[in-house]
Structures are given as C-alpha cells and as structure tokens.
Simulated assay, not measured.
Amino acid sequence: MNGLIYILAILGIAFVIMMVARGLLAVFFPKPDPKNPYIQMHQIKDTNDKNYDEYLNWLDKKGHGVPIPKFETPEDKKAKDKINKYL
C-alpha cells in the first residue's frame, strides 16, 4: 500500500513539473502567429513606401544626385502593366 502511494506521489510531482516546463516554454518561446498573406503584402508595400520616402529625404539633405527608381512590389508591377496596356 505504501509503495502505491509513493508511485502516485512521484507521478503527481512529475505531472506538475511537466506542466510548469510547458508553461515556461510557452512564455519564453511563443509560437509565431500565422499571418494573413494579404496583410503581409500590405505591410511590405507600406514599409517599401516609407523606406523610399526616407531615402528621398536623405538625398535632399545630403545634396546627392538623382534618386534611383523605387523598387516595385509584384502587385505594383501588375497594376502598372495593366494601366499601360490600356493607354
């Protein structure tokens, strides 16, 4: 009878340790949230716009030459091609 109590106590302690470890792992190493690809593309476009504006301001302040063309996202390129097709 005493052996059964010891085994149950050890299993209970092991369970508690396992749950604490899982909780700590979840806090320190959270799983990345899967993002909507449309949101990601919009964020990339916004970042690209901000970076280009910052680049143009930098050129104005430093007095450097002609700016290089802005990098186009695939969606920008498709829209531009579609517009040029009808012009």
Rank of each mutant, 00 (worst) to 15 (best):
M1A: 03
M1Q: 06
G3H: 11
L4M: 11
I7V: 09
L8T: 13
A9E: 05
I10Y: 00
L11A: 15
L11W: 01
G12T: 15
G12R: 07
I13G: 00
I13M: 00
A14L: 09
A14T: 12
A14S: 14
A14M: 11
V16K: 02
I17F: 07
I17S: 04
M18D: 08
M18E: 08
M18S: 13
M19P: 03
V20F: 00
V20H: 00
A21W: 05
A21H: 06
R22H: 08
G23I: 05
L24D: 04
L24H: 05
V27I: 15
V27Q: 03
F28G: 03
F29C: 05
F29A: 12
P30W: 10
K31V: 11
K31W: 07
P32K: 15
P32T: 13
P32E: 12
P34Y: 01
K35A: 09
K35I: 10
N36T: 09
P37C: 08
P37E: 12
P37G: 07
P37Y: 05
Y38L: 10
Q40R: 12
Q40T: 14
M41H: 10
M41D: 06
Q43E: 14
Q43S: 11
I44C: 02
I44R: 11
K45E: 11
K45Q: 10
K45D: 10
D46K: 13
D46E: 15
T47F: 01
T47L: 05
N48K: 13
N48F: 01
D49T: 05
K50H: 06
D53M: 14
Y55D: 00
N57P: 05
W58F: 04
W58D: 13
W58S: 04
W58L: 06
L59K: 02
L59F: 01
L59D: 00
L59H: 00
D60H: 15
D60C: 12
D60W: 14
K62P: 04
G63P: 00
H64E: 07
H64I: 06
V66F: 11
V66C: 07
P67N: 05
P67M: 01
P67R: 05
P67C: 00
I68N: 13
P69Y: 04
K70C: 01
K70Y: 00
K70G: 00
F71R: 14
E72M: 08
T73L: 15
P74E: 07
E75L: 13
K78I: 14
D81T: 15
D81S: 15
D81C: 10
I83S: 07
I83Y: 06
I83L: 13
I83T: 09
N84C: 14
N84T: 15
Y86M: 07
